[in-house]
Amino acid sequence: MASHQAFSSFLFLVCILQSIGVGYSATFTITNKCTNTIWPGILSNAGTDQLPTTGFALGPGESNTFSVPTSWSGRLWGRTLCSQDSTTGKFTCVTADCGSSAVECAGGGATPPATLAEFTLNGAGGLDFYDVSLVDGYNLPMLVVAEGGTGGNCTTTGCVVDLNAACPSELKVTASDEGVACKSACEAFGDPQYCCSGAYATPDTCKPSSYSQFFKTACPKAYSYAYDDGTSTFTCASANYIITFCPTPSTSVKSSNGQVPGAVDVSASLRNTMPNFVVMAVTVMAAAWRLPPLFDSL
């Protein structure tokens, strides 16, 4: 009898805890649809415990699913072109390295440029807040899907276009003569007007630049600069999240024959009078219009 009463009391306590949200956790599934291995990195924000894993290898077609605890806040990204020195054992990546010299990231964030997925779970009003950010530049296509959630708008967001080929030359990061990442204007030039710092540290003074518009044109739902909240932050309640790298191979803005699909026919004389990044933005926009219907809104 006593044991039955104790068990009933335990169930009652569990119900109370569940009703107030204690113990709620989300499931994150990270999937690699790229043609090469990537190494996801994970960083918890200040005041939030690190997850059991902070970095791992993910081969083409592989997925990794894990639980994320109550009110977790942090960011995820993908590292590329990684290798381990056979002599020193040091692990490094060409893009989005976290500087830990190991596969797991030891408290360090992504070295720009990097495409970031940012999360705050069970935040204000019990909602999850999430976004995909190109504020620190871009290195991989990424899609975030909120699955099974309620409330908020639970919008799918991300940047599904391959921007590395079309990146303006002044922002492009190359390896073996191939574009592998695209810097933000802040990273490339360090100018306060691009970094939203100093005299430009408010929404009234820091406005979108031609460079941030290059990212925004290709990826309308992703953050393109610091004060891009209105069109780039989304909310959901009690959802699980699927984070996919290279969600579809057809979204590259550069085809296998080296041509930009659907590029606007800009005459040579007009190209000579237009800034390079404007030409690039036009071609990316034209390519984005030809995306499969699933991604038209991204």
Rank of each mutant, 00 (worst) to 15 (best):
Y225H: 07
L58W: 09
I38E: 04
N139A: 03
S86E: 04
A166N: 08
L51R: 11
F245C: 03
P192A: 05
N153A: 14
S252C: 06
T35H: 13
P60N: 10
Y211A: 02
S210H: 00
S255N: 14
C219R: 04
G59K: 14
K221L: 15
D131Y: 01
P203W: 00
A2P: 00
V278G: 02
T65E: 12
A226G: 10
D228T: 06
C182V: 07
G198F: 00
E104V: 10
D131F: 04
M280F: 00
S209Y: 03
G59Y: 10
P60E: 11
V180D: 02
S67D: 09
S184Y: 04
M280N: 15
K254I: 13
P40V: 02
E187V: 04
S252P: 07
F245P: 05
S25C: 07
T156E: 14
T217P: 06
Q259A: 14
N45Y: 15
V173F: 09
V260H: 12
F28C: 00
S8L: 15
S250R: 08
Y130R: 07
T88V: 00
E118N: 09
S250Q: 15
C236Y: 08
Y225D: 09
I42Y: 13
P40L: 04
T92A: 02
D177A: 13
V103S: 05
S133C: 10
K216Q: 12
T29P: 00
E104A: 15
S224E: 08
N139E: 02
P192N: 02
Y24F: 15
C93K: 00
G148Y: 13
A237I: 11
S255A: 15
W39V: 08
C195N: 01
T273K: 11
A239F: 06
T156Q: 07
D49K: 14
A6L: 15
A239I: 03
A175Y: 15
G262K: 07
C167K: 09
S297E: 11
P203N: 01
C196K: 07
C219L: 04
T205Q: 00
G123Q: 11
T235D: 10
G148Q: 10
P249S: 12
G109F: 05
T155P: 03
Y225S: 01
F28Q: 12
N153T: 14
P40T: 02
F91W: 06
D191P: 05
K183I: 05
L121F: 13
S238P: 09
S25M: 00
S184T: 08
Q18P: 06
T29R: 12
G179K: 01
L294G: 12
T48M: 08
A181M: 04
S209E: 01
G149D: 04
I16E: 10
